[in-house]
Each structure stands twice: as C-alpha cells, then as structure tokens.
C-alpha cells in the first residue's frame, strides 16, 4: 500500500478494492479507542472518532463462524455450494468467501480474492 492510494489519508472503497486485488487486505484502526475493522468507514463504529489509521490486516486468522450456501444469489447461481465465513484476524473480523471446507476454529490464510459483478471479496482457505 502506498500513501497515494489514500484520499486525504482516508481509506476509500476504491483503495480497499484495489489493494485486495493486489493481495493486501486493508482495514482501519481507531487512533482514539484502538477499535479495528475490516470494513472501512468514515468514523469509528465503536467511539465515533474520525481519527482512523489505515492498516494492513493479518493474512492469517481463525474461522469465527461459517455456513455453506446451497441456494445462492443471482451472481453465484452457476456455482456449486460454497462456504462463506466470518474470519477473526486479531482485533478485526472480516466476511470472506472460502476456498475448500472449513469449520469454526480452523486456521485460514488469505488466498486472494474472488469477483462478483466487478466487486472483489476476500478469499480465505
């Protein structure tokens, strides 16, 4: 990640998306309360502070919860059943598409991203 990816130091969706396609999962950490998130926002969801620092999130984490989607939405309607999970990465959690089969507690690593309607999602496995 280079600083010129950010607009006035803030993490935009466009920057998050570009970084993910390059294999980096970006998030934010609040400079005031240290709350971390993998879904960038304009202010901290925990304390309301606008002082957010862009951080590279860990690429290894643990499955916090998961489900196998058998009846998918339109964008995935040609896919075989697939898993979606919430992955715990130190202080932040992220929703991710799963490569392979996982259970709660399993260790997973960032494998890259998948695309649906020109929007990437983190791929863990």
């Amino acid at each position: 990640m280079s600083d010129d990816e950010l607009v006035d130091g803030d993490l935009t969706y466009a920057s998050w998306k570009r970084a993910l396609r390059d294999g980096d999962l970006l998030g934010q950490k609040c400079r005031d309360c240290r709350h971390a998130t993998a879904a960038p926002k304009a202010a901290c969801a925990h304390c309301g502070s606008r002082e957010l620092e862009t951080v590279e999130l860990p690429t290894t984490g643990a499955i916090y919860s998961e489900t196998t989607i058998t009846v998918p939405p339109r964008q995935f309607s040609d896919d075989d059943p697939y898993q979606v999970a919430i992955v715990e990465l130190d202080e932040a959690r992220v929703m991710a598409h799963i490569d392979g089969a996982v259970e709660i507690g399993d260790t997973v690593r960032l494998q890259g991203s998948i695309e649906a309607d020109d929007a990437p999602a983190p791929l863990f496995g």
Partner: peptide, 26 residues
C-alpha cells in the same frame, strides 16, 4: 447486507442467520 463488504462474498439472508446460528450452536 453490505454492498461492498458482504454481498461480493456470496452471502444470502439465510446465510447471514446461519452465521449467527452456527456460532450459537458452537
């Protein structure tokens, strides 16, 4: 669900509540 940070992962509404419920089962 979130347009940028959830929908591209392939989540559905049964899926959202399945995530909550699987954690409850765990």
């Amino acid at each position: 669900s979130d347009k940028q940070y959830e929908q591209p992962a392939g989540i559905t509404f049964p899926g959202v509540f399945a995530l909550l419920t699987n954690r409850h089962m765990h």
